[in-house]
Nucleic acid binder design. Structure first.
Length: 673
DNA sequence: TCGCATTTAAACACGA
DNA sequence: CTCGTGTTTAAATGCG
């Protein structure tokens, strides 16, 4: 069958909806790239504070050997960070402020600023040229790395300090109950994980991180997600220090999220700058940890201490107020001396840091892969070569930042991970179809890959209504759906369609009526819509140069030929145009979720336009084997009038008797919404 | 610039 | 009459 020719993208945002403002308006700017003006960075709304709860416990004491190990690890981490920075092109470790500007990337600030929250991915794509997008990606990557680095750094410093303090203090043991502090520490750990998660979320929003649910694993997975945001603060408070809002963690959390958010919006004000300074460590150890960046911060203030800020102790879980540094030091030495609790806390902290590092490595790797996939030159050599199982990314924690139906939420400029290439090149906010056809990944596979993404992210899918409708219909066993079922499919599959119902429903109806490829069939139960694959294919005469006949032959040989003759006959007879049952054809097809469509097949996966605008159908051998990608074919088939057995789409097994069972099951059972 | 495709909006018809 | 379903028409827009 053919291939999808039609995957046009749906891009224009529904008028006026999300504050995105007139798409059209900005769209014009199209290539101009600049649209700067209006971009208010505002952004953000999402002030979600996620808190973590639950507990991870690890106790134990640090033996000297462990301490040594710890330090070594830290050194290693520092080295890694350094590498990272080098790699990410953040040449100047020390200067945070200029990081944006300093970054090699030259994305117009205006564009950068507006992108994330104000624009949909498509819009961004439209506004930005591929090179710009690339630059943007790099910029984002740099930001992300920087943020993580800073965070790590902060954590490391904190740890180090704690250790040093402990050492210094000797072994005096405050008799304090371990419980509280430990709990606090654990909580901090959780919170950090949360933060990490948030960070990832942000990254995901930026389309930098993949979301495949299947990949969900790794550290984040272990997070108790049930904790409500409000819990944490309370926990913290309940614990050690009365009064004052906790700082250490919270602050960090804010910082992190803040920066993440800013990064997202590209406004990036270097909020992150950790209060931590270069303080000379008490025991004189020339912190291995304070390699570069520290210098940037306020080291000049002798009165600063990483664990002291805002007049209170920032030791995890401790919010003790201290008038001055001296008092704080005293407090530190007494309350947070080297004891079981403190060492345990350090260990936890260590683990946290390690986890973050691992996570960073994973994400970096993923980013690399993504960029490679997008044919973007990897902006950096891999910082870490750790053999991380790149599976850490998790699906959207729905509960957290991405309520599927966040109607009000600012439209997050998400880009489906897998969509990258396609959307990068094809999509524009407004309508752009043809190009998308060529370069967009096939709807089925695309959907399959980013199923979760679309399901949860309020992003407009880069497919035309026709493509989506077809997909919806083809997904069902009998390849037919009632209008309402189609609606349901839309809402179920795309968060985006959970709102603006009037608009898109009208569009759906319009498309059903308008396109010949959608055939209405009267049933006992009413009317159902089916897809006439041939018509669908015809819609867009493929521009392929390849000879139609060749294609045809291929088709017949490969798939069509496989069809059971009798079955074909049956199909022919049936008034149903159930021609396509791609899914059946290739059982092993990529997406288990969606039946594959020819689109998959046909659509070239290659992002770069240059590759083949007019090139013949790219039939990659592998693909070809299961699905026929015929793009050109359509023209030849003439309308017999009915949706008979389509040449293109072989549906070998259209599972089932077409007519009879159609009626039976209206809902595939997935009907959620 | 033209034509096609897509999206959106809206009017209208019909039947439950 | 209202609502859901369908059909049409028209305008705006993007793209080749």
């Amino acid at each position: 069958m053919m291939v999808e020719s039609a995957s046009e993208t749906i891009r224009s945002a529904p008028s006026g909806q999300n504050g995105v403002g007139s798409l059209s308006g900005q769209a014009d700017g199209g290539g101009s790239g600049g649209g700067a003006g209006a971009t208010s960075t505002a952004g953000g709304g999402a002030g979600r504070d996620t808190a973590a709860g639950g507990g991870a416990d690890s106790n134990g004491e640090l033996s000297p050997a462990e301490l040594l190990h710890f330090q070594q690890q830290q050194a290693l981490q520092v080295a890694r960070q350094f590498l990272l920075q080098q790699a990410s092109g953040l040449s100047s470790p020390g200067n945070n402020d200029s990081k944006q500007s300093a970054s090699a990337v030259q994305v117009p600030v205006s564009v950068a600023m507006m992108s994330p929250q104000m624009l949909t991915p498509q819009q961004m794509q439209q506004i930005l040229s591929p090179p710009q997008l690339q630059a943007l990606l790099q910029q984002q990557q740099a930001l992300m790395l920087q943020q993580l680095q800073e965070y790590y750094k902060k954590q490391q410093e904190q740890l180090h300090l704690q250790l040093l303090t402990q050492q210094q203090a000797g072994k005096q043991q405050p008799k304090e109950a371990l419980g509280n502090k430990q709990l606090a520490f654990q909580q901090q750990l959780l919170q950090m994980q949360q933060l990490q998660q948030q960070h990832l979320l942000n990254l995901q929003r930026q389309g930098l991180v993949g979301l495949q649910p299947s990949q969900a694993s790794g550290p984040l997975q272990s997070l108790p997600q049930a904790v409500c945001p409000t819990d944490l603060p309370q926990l913290w408070k309940g614990e050690g220090a009365p009064g004052q809002p906790e700082d250490s963690v919270k602050q960090e959390g804010l910082d992190l999220t803040g920066t993440a958010a800013t990064a997202t919006s590209f406004t990036t004000t270097p909020k992150v700058s950790p209060p931590v300074s270069h303080h000379t460590l008490p025991n004189g150890q020339p912190t291995v940890l304070t390699p570069r960046r520290d210098s940037s911060s306020h080291e000049e203030t002798p009165s600063s201490h990483p664990l002291y800020g805002h007049g209170e102790c920032k030791w995890p879980g401790c919010e003790t107020l201290c008038e001055d540094l001296g008092q704080f030091i005293k407090h530190l030495n007494t309350e947070h001396a080297l004891d079981d609790r403190s060492t345990a806390q350090c260990r936890v902290q260590m683990q946290v840091v390690q986890q973050l590092e691992i996570q960073l490595a994973k994400e970096s790797e993923r980013l690399q892969a993504m960029m490679a996939h997008l044919h973007m030159r990897p902006s950096e050599p891999k910082p870490f070569s750790q053999p991380v199982a790149v599976s850490a990314a998790d699906s959207f924690p729905d509960g957290l930042a991405h309520p599927p139906t966040s109607a009000a939420a600012p439209v997050t400029p998400l880009r489906p991970p897998g969509l990258g290439s396609a959307s990068l090149h094809s999509g524009g906010p407004a309508r752009r179809r043809s190009s998308s056809d060529k370069f967009c990944s096939p709807i089925s596979s695309e959907l399959a890959q980013n199923h979760e993404f679309y399901k949860n992210a309020d992003v407009r899918p880069p497919f035309t209504y026709a493509s989506l409708i077809r997909q919806a219909i083809l997904e069902t066993p009998d390849r037919q759906l009632t209008l309402n079922e189609i609606y349901n499919w839309f809402t179920r599959m795309f968060a985006y369609f959970r709102r603006n119902t009037a608009t898109w429903k009208n569009a759906v109806r319009h498309n059903l009526s308008l396109h010949k490829c959608f055939v209405r069939v009267e049933n006992v139960k009413g009317a159902v819509w089916t897809v006439d694959e041939r018509e669908y294919q015809k819609r867009r005469p493929p521009k392929m140069t390849g000879s139609p006949t060749l294609v045809k032959n291929m088709i017949s040989g490969l798939s069509y030929g496989a069809l059971n003759a009798s079955y074909q006959a049956a199909l022919a007879e049936s008034s149903f145009p159930l021609l396509n049952s791609p899914g059946m054809l290739n059982p092993g097809s990529t997406s288990s979720l969606l039946p594959l469509s020819h689109e998959d097949v046909g659509a070239p996966v290659e992002p770069l336009p240059s590759n083949g605008s007019s090139s013949p159908p790219r039939l990659s051998p592998p693909q070809y084997s299961h699905q026929v990608q015929v793009k050109e074919e359509p023209a030849e088939v003439e309308e017999d009038g009915r949706p008979g057995p389509p040449l293109g789409p072989p549906n070998p097994s259209t599972a089932g008797p077409p007519e009879d069972r159609d009626l039976e099951e209206e809902l595939p059972g997935e009907e959620l919404s």
